[in-house]
Amino acid sequence: MPDVSLENISKTYNKGKTIALRDISFSIEKGELFGLIGPDGAGKTSLFRILTTLLLPDAGKATVNGYDVVQQYREIRKRVGYMPGKFSLYQDLSVEENLNFFATVFNTTVKENYNLIQDIYVQIAPFKNRPAGKLSGGMKQKLALCCALIHRPEVLFLDEPTTGVDTVSRKDFWQMLQKLKAEGITILVSTPYMDEASLCERIALIQNGSIMSIDTPQQIIQMYPDPLFAIRAENMSTLLADLRQLQLLKSVYSFGDYHHITFVQNQENSPQELVQQLAQAQHLQLEIKPITPGIEDCFIYLMTQQNESQRNGN
């Protein structure tokens, strides 16, 4: 039996005017580390709030740990840990006071489950007397995680825990999540950072309130329909402008130090043809190579598909 399951969940705001979630169904197995990947406004927070019993869905059914999110909300509230997107601890209370307070809120003590949070807590322990509001972003996030874990929840809901946090803290954070997964805790985590997708066992790509794809990151990447190429030259912005003019390209997107491109017709000599067409522009150090797509490539592809089907639908 899945630990979290959603069947045809929909949610609207403003009396139906704003659609937040459209007919969402998926399930998460016990002990799975599941990522919900999508930009702001995609519907991630609404989904989290429905699963944590904070919001009622307009339609559909969802269970967490076997309990219904509408009827049996009290049972769920005893069993889950939740870290909202915004830093939600008492800023005027010290690190230690926050932790002790949340321990009693969950009918437990810091001592009881200390072994679970120990690895994380030791990193913030030097600041235990500092008000939570005066901690740095990474420290706040660690404290919030400790507070969400203090009662050893069955399911952990983390809504954008790494937003606004620097790379170093983000990497640390994902390592912590791997450890928690090893403890058997089911984790649902959302993030707008596509590069974090590969750290999850399975992911759902969400945009405009719809799930575009659910699978393992590897599987999603394999489903990318076209051969993908990376291209670069000395002047990247003129190259980008030139590439956009070309009829033989299906898509052109910049990806850091390369531009990623796909061809309308995938023939073996397509790259050579491209190079020929670019010859006139005299790009220096032109380099083109086939690459494996990343989750961000997939996301962009699925987004364009979604936009097209919406346009056709209207």
Binding site: D40, A42, T163, P192, M194, Q207, I300
Partner: peptide
Amino acid sequence: DEPTGGVDPITRR
């Protein structure tokens, strides 16, 4: 100052 935080990948570009 972090102008593209949370923005979708296409809009970001």
